[in-house]
Design a protein around this nucleic acid. Structure first.
Lengths: 226, 226
DNA sequence: CTTTTTTGTCACAGAATTGTAACCATTCGT
DNA sequence: ACGAATGGTTACAATTCTGTGACAAAAAAG
């Protein structure tokens, strides 16, 4: 996945830098401005994935910026998170009149803003992950976190579950041990590739009669039939 | 248990699926169709609690569907939320002539639509039963703020109540501690995820024989059986 | 203000999970 | 057929996770 960009529009330097730092720490790219007019230009030119917008800005204020963003078809789809003081007309802000996707009330914690950003990004990304996966006699439901072989529920540990999910999401494709390690264990894992083998074995044991959907591709890795 | 059902009428598959996912995540049941005529049949047969209706549909368009729903006494009471493009004659849509309960302008965020649905349901549902949730021997009534295990009333604290309510609203789905914290404690809570465990424990203690509906999903979080 | 209730955090023990290494079994090229 | 890779199996120590009880701070009730 590509890096997502956040546009921060806030005139108070301290707050802006704090937010910028937090966003960067979470792996986002950051654009900053203290000015409403510049925010509009930046939004149009750079198409950020989300905008964090202070309501009180010198010159063109946050409300006007937000409305302008909504009116422009180029930027209308970008979610906006408003930073507001308590008691401001939140219904109007989030309603259609202004059109913000969400808001955070000052004083806020960076954690709170981060959560809003992530939540908003999850909501607006048009590719909802498929939650139900299946192959052969095996069914996996990521939302409910259950796996069935035929009619029988199978209890998997987290790692086993994630491993099976990764294989199913790439059903038909070979997955090398390295790919699986990156996807299931994360990039920071520094262990042996053979770890995958052990978990494949445990998976097969638990899947019982359904185990034959997992094929070994010698010299490469594993693959789900299909 | 009374799960509320939403009928989604939208021909663009991506949008429909995104909305469906959002509704399901919020604990609603979902019916989907891309076709105006089928929408009428479905509405009559299944009596959904709300209908989200795209204005632009191939064949029978949204306006006609909405008018037809209004004329039929079986469906006239079902609130309709229209998805419209900007600049369409919103006054007519929500007014007497067409009779939609509310509308959302494209492009919209799922959050926006969700808020409309909930607001419309709140306005139209006069039946307190619709706030009733249940699983196994446990019944929870959000409106009256009471919980029963079998015939025995159980007194819960606010936090315990909200926790149980959140789990019940996502019955069958795993809820991670993070998700629960965000939903029950709010985004601004900065505490420890293990706090959830303690409250789960207190809940289980109070639920007594009904406690077995709360399952621990090791490595992930908790889930209500079902 | 005092008492009671509720709530969040912590420490700890038991249990489940996991990564690794060592050892077989199988496959493949020669 | 043989040796070298490669994958399967097993056992085990280390780690991680959850349930529990205790406790102090915070909130609510009196």
């Amino acid at each position: 996945m590509t890096v997502q960009t956040i546009l921060l529009v806030e005139d108070e330097k301290d707050i802006r830098e704090l937010l910028a730092l937090t966003c960067k720490r979470e792996g986002f790219a950051v654009l900053e401005t203290e000015n409403g007019a510049k925010a509009l230009t930046l939004a149009r030119e750079k198409k950020p994935d989300a905008i964090v917008l202070d309501l009180m800005l010198p010159g063109l204020d946050g409300l006007s910026v937000c409305k302008a963003l909504q009116r422009d078809p180029d930027t209308a789809a970008i979610p906006v998170i408003m930073l507001t003081a308590r008691g401001e007309e939140i219904d109007r802000i989030v309603g259609f009149e202004v059109g913000a996707s969400d808001y955070v009330v000052k004083p806020f914690s960076t954690r709170e803003v981060m959560l809003r950003i992530k939540s908003v990004l999850k909501r607006t990304s048009l590719v909802p992950e498929q939650t139900a996966l299946a192959s052969g006699a095996i069914r996996l439901d990521a939302l409910r976190h259950v796996v069935f072989v035929g009619d029988e529920e199978v209890l998997l540990t987290v790692t086993e579950f994630r491993l099976l999910e990764d294989l199913l999401r790439h059903a038909g494709q070979v997955r090398s041990r390295e790919q699986v390690l990156d996807a299931v264990w994360g990039y920071s894992f520094e262990g042996y590739a053979r770890t995958v083998d052990t978990h494949i074995r445990r998976l097969r044991a638990k899947l019982g009669p359904g185990a034959d959907v997992i094929e070994t591709v010698r010299g490469i890795g594993y693959r789900i039939k299909g």
